[in-house]
Design a protein around this nucleic acid. Structure first.
Lengths: 204, 204
DNA sequence: GCCATTTTTCGACCAGCGGTCATGTTGTTT
DNA sequence: AAACAACATGACCGCTGGTCGAAAAATGGC
């Protein structure tokens, strides 16, 4: 008989549960196994390493937002800045999923850093072609004036992701908004749009 | 009798040597002790944790470039963009110090991610006020037109650091240059300077 | 010089980690 | 029923970051 969810999915679910509910820290493979109610050895039947579990989880979490973003890019009838706003939104919402309560202990800081690295890496590399395509269309329609769409997309995504993640350049919520607001200003001038015209990107 | 260098310094030197000479990976505390020619327990007399050693090393490595950057910021007779170029240069040179030969094994990827995170964190947070001050002076002299100096400084530093580190958004050397070139274009438009006027920022 | 006190050094030791593996257990095929 | 493959397991391994009591070196008052 086939279970509702395969062990593979069960393992990912368990890791996710541990990540959001309990403190983040370094979650041991044994813990994951215990949470999933299976033997530790079984985990290595489905995953080659602990890293691979993290990687698979990150990948799974961005399947949905990515596909919606891709659909977004195809909707040429929607104005490009509206679509950009939705990507902004996607970055914000997915980012906050990984914010967990910080406790005093620094144990497992390394694993956490790796998680953030993987997360940002995926988000930037996956969203970049989508956002670049949107920008390219915006250039064609004349809404955007800038001659390096890929570079612009990457810059925007890097700043957004890093500030949302808040690990590499930690700051208060106000400072984050200040920087994003500056990014929007820079974007307005860079794409030759009037000041304030992109303010709607700021709504969280 | 006082040794030429304290054990504290010796430990940092040993870690640095291990980081640059051998493959990066996860360097164990025992290894550091062996390299330094001291007992493992002694390390914990000078440092509370392995993390603290990394942190101290990162901090030490940016003492010098930071102080020169701070001196730079004070030199109001030098045009602001020249000083900015020197900060660009500082980012580039310090970044490459940590690029090490990549081998196939993924062991210790977590520790490496932590190192990169610490490194970028320090670089951005330390350079930000300096660069912001330079920008602020540029605004006063009329060389720069932008109303959020801190935000602009942070954006520039984030993009520079992330691209130089090449861990969060890995790409080829050409792609890196492309993105930086895009950043410069964006900067030119954003600060209301003519296209190409900031090209000298690109020289590595 | 000498002892008492403090500062420094050490490596055996610890719990726990990620990962392996021989040994089941279960399910399918013939 | 027998044979075979797919799945499950926890004892086990080498190693890690970190602890600790004891020894060694330095220090200071006399």
């Amino acid at each position: 008989m086939q279970e509702q969810q395969s062990k593979y999915t069960l393992i990912l679910d368990s890791l996710q549960k541990l990540l959001e509910n309990k403190k983040l820290q370094s979650i041991s493979v044994s813990e994951i196994a215990q949470e999933a109610g299976i033997g530790k050895g079984s985990i290595y039947y489905y995953f080659p390493s602990k890293d691979a579990i993290l990687e698979a989880l990150v990948e799974r979490n961005y399947e949905k937002p990515l596909s919606t973003a891709q659909n977004l890019a195809a909707q040429t009838n929607i104005p490009p800045f509206t679509r950009m706003a939705m990507i902004f939104q996607a970055c914000r919402s997915t980012s906050s999923d990984y914010l967990k309560p910080q406790d005093g202990s620094n144990i497992g800081a390394a694993e956490e850093a790796l998680l953030h690295q993987k997360y940002m890496n995926h988000l930037i590399s996956e969203f970049k072609p989508v956002l670049a395509e949107i920008i390219r269309q915006g250039i064609k329609t004349g809404d955007i004036r800038f001659d390096k769409p890929e570079a612009l997309a990457e810059i925007v995504l890097i700043v957004l992701t890093v500030k949302m993640d808040n690990t590499i350049a930690p700051s208060s919520r106000e400072e984050i908004e200040e920087t994003i607001s500056g990014l929007v200003s820079l974007l307005e001038k860079g794409t030759e749009n009037p000041p304030g015209s992109l303010n709607f990107l700021l709504n969280s």
